[in-house]
């Protein structure tokens, strides 16, 4: 009976009420914490640091959503997921949103019944090779051994690419990025392929990053974004517009440094005012406080600040903005208007 009791007690702690079906927003508010699915460890995008705090580009989005909904960027439970577990975790309601460099594809959206709420990183699949190999194009990789993370879209793209170009390869399946790094560095594979951002992050962790090159071919489109369950449009809106708020904030020059001032003293730009809740009632429409966007931006800064802090050119990962620049700077980031 003692044992039954432990089980009961455990069940009591484990049974965190979380209706999977609808009203995720209410659940999050009631719970006082956002359950956010993240990667198990990819430097720059989502990894616990030496103090055990999660940080990274995707993690910052979780924090921004938590700040928008709950006013507290630390009210997040980070739930690490693997390629295999991420979709079940979301479908079963274990997590409220998934921010884990997940590619937006037709079948995931339609067949797996998820809703992608935007794109926070435009990526593409690339190849990294040791400079000493003298390879300059992915098409020269005939016969090469390729390290590839299982359970990702990159695995399918890789097969397609080599088949299309009528060249052969030997796949070496790895489960995590860390293992891919290990195999690649030990020379167990000639090239490592994953999203170009991931390659940059991986290369940054090497002892001599300059000894490795990322080949010019980008063989696929990998629009990465946060996703939520189908059928809860209110919650989908919250995540979508939090992301848009971060993007719009950069476009409008709202940063973590000036957001409080701008919210305290409304300026003459109506859209900024609507965004920051000093004009109109956008927050109320979503079921959030008026200062939701202020909190979201104050949490980690706008999109540009998040990018620079986690994966930008001044970090070890050193990614250029490229496609992820604002549309005004020739990139693809284009937030719909806050109106």
């Amino acid at each position: 009976m003692t044992y039954k009791l432990i089980l009961g007690a455990l069940a009591a702690t484990g049974l965190t009420a979380g209706a999977a079906a609808a009203a995720t927003l209410d659940d999050v508010k009631e719970r006082g914490a956002l359950n956010c699915g993240v990667v198990t460890g990819l430097v720059g995008f989502g990894a616990p640091n030496a103090n055990g705090e999660w940080e990274g580009f995707d993690v910052a989005l979780c924090r921004a959503v938590a700040a928008a909904v709950l006013g507290d960027p630390t009210a997040v439970e980070f739930i690490p997921t693997t390629g295999k577990t991420r979709f079940t975790a979301l479908a079963s309601g274990e997590i409220d949103m998934l921010a884990r460099n997940t590619t937006w594809t037709f079948s995931r959206d339609v067949d797996l019944k998820f809703e992608f709420t935007g794109i926070n990183y435009y990526d593409g699949q690339g190849f990294m090779v040791p400079k000493s190999l003298g390879v300059t194009s992915a098409k020269d990789l005939d016969g090469a051994t390729v390290c590839i993370q299982t359970g990702t879209t990159t695995e399918l793209n890789l097969a397609d690419f080599f088949r299309k170009n009528n060249i052969s390869y030997e796949p070496v399946a790895v489960e995590t990025n860390a293992e891919g790094q290990q195999q690649y560095q030990a020379g167990a594979c000639d090239t490592y392929t994953t999203d170009a951002s991931g390659l940059a992050a991986t290369r940054a962790a090497f002892e001599n990053p300059a000894d490795h090159v990322i080949l010019p071919e980008i063989i696929s489109k990998e629009p990465l974004g946060p996703l939520v369950r189908h059928g809860d449009n209110e919650w989908g809106d919250v995540v979508r517009w939090t992301l848009n708020a971060l993007i719009a904030a950069e476009e409008m020059g709202v940063t973590s440094a000036n957001v409080q001032d701008m919210a305290a003293a409304p300026g003459d730009s109506p859209e900024i005012n609507r965004l920051l809740g000093t004009e109109g009632n956008l927050g109320e429409m979503m079921g959030l406080e008026a200062d939701w966007a202020v909190n979201a931006i104050a949490a980690n800064g706008n999109y540009g600040e998040i990018f620079e802090k986690n994966i930008g050119e001044n970090t070890p990962i050193g990614l250029a903005r490229g496609l992820n620049a604002q549309w005004t700077n020739g990139g693809l980031l284009y937030s719909p208007p806050f109106r």
Partner: peptide, 16 residues
């Protein structure tokens, strides 16, 4: 990284 039944059917196929 050995492709046994757990890795193919229970891994990649399940994921994809």
């Amino acid at each position: 990284g050995y492709a046994d039944i757990t890795a193919t059917l229970g891994g990649i196929t399940l994921n994809q």
